[in-house]
Simulated assay, not measured.
Amino acid sequence: MTEPVETVHRDSRVDDVLERLAQADFEGFPVVDDDERVVGIVTQTDLVRLFRKKDRIVWIPIGVPPFSETLTYGFDLSLDELDIGIDAAKAARKPIHEIMTTDVVTVTPDTALEEVIVLLTDEERDINRLPVVEDHRIVGIVTREDALRAVRDNS
């Protein structure tokens, strides 16, 4: 597992999370409450879905000025809507708990590698990362890449 874990608070705003994600080398954050308990998970996909509208894709670079490093997100927007900017601004101010996935699958530090691999390869759930919790608090995270490295190292 990777530790310490970068998390976002359930009350963090979408625009703040987007900014942090643009600077990160991963694609999502566990969401925690005031007691550092995992209450959700938010991914790039969740954030892109928030801005999705009807029939056109507009590619928007997201980053921090001077935009030396940006990520490009595709937002599906209807160009005949006059209030696109207003909708995007409203969405950016939402707290992350309004869009996060709340049905989070977690493991403990003692979970067997085989079980971790089963969870990370479940086609229905499409899980890329598993928060590791102990006494209801996050202590690490295991990604698909972590599991593959562990399999390689144990071979």
Rank of each mutant, 00 (worst) to 15 (best):
T45R: 15
E124R: 03
D146C: 00
V105L: 04
R152M: 11
E27I: 03
E145L: 07
H97I: 06
A150Y: 05
A22M: 04
V105A: 09
L47K: 09
K90F: 04
E27G: 12
F75I: 12
F67M: 13
K94M: 14
T143R: 00
G140M: 10
E27P: 02
R56G: 08
P66K: 09
D87Y: 08
D110F: 02
E145I: 04
A112T: 04
T101P: 01
T7V: 10
W59A: 08
E145M: 04
R20T: 04
H97T: 10
G28V: 10
A22P: 09
S155N: 14
N128R: 13
D15I: 06
D135N: 15
T101K: 02
D11H: 14
P61S: 13
E6H: 08
I117A: 13
V142W: 01
V105Q: 14
T7R: 07
F67V: 02
A88H: 13
A112W: 00
K94V: 06
G40V: 08
P95C: 06
G140H: 03
V48Y: 00
E81H: 08
D76M: 11
H97M: 12
L18V: 09
I96M: 02
I127C: 01
A22V: 02
R152T: 10
S68D: 15
S68I: 07
D76Q: 15
N154I: 04
L71G: 00
V42T: 03
D135F: 06
A92P: 03
E115C: 00
D16S: 12
T121P: 00
V105M: 06
V105E: 15
D34I: 11
R37L: 00
D122G: 02
T108G: 06
E19R: 14
A150M: 15
A112M: 06
A92Q: 07
H9E: 12
E27T: 13
I96V: 12
K54L: 02
P66Y: 09
T108H: 03
D122H: 11
V133W: 04
V105W: 04
L130H: 03
L77F: 03
G40Q: 10
P66N: 11
Q44N: 09
E3R: 10
D153V: 01
D146F: 02
V64I: 13
E123K: 15
T72S: 13
D122T: 10
R137L: 00
V118L: 08
K54R: 15
I41A: 03
P131T: 10
E134V: 09
A92C: 07
R56C: 06
R20S: 11
L18E: 05
G40P: 05
D135R: 15
H9G: 06
E36A: 01
I99A: 01
D80S: 10
V38T: 03
P61A: 13
E115L: 05
L148Y: 11
V48F: 01
R10T: 13
T7Q: 04
P66W: 11
E124L: 01
H97S: 12
E123S: 06
V64C: 01
A92Y: 07
T7W: 02
P65K: 05
T70F: 11
D76I: 11
R10N: 08
P131G: 05
R125T: 10
A112E: 11
V116E: 14
I96N: 05
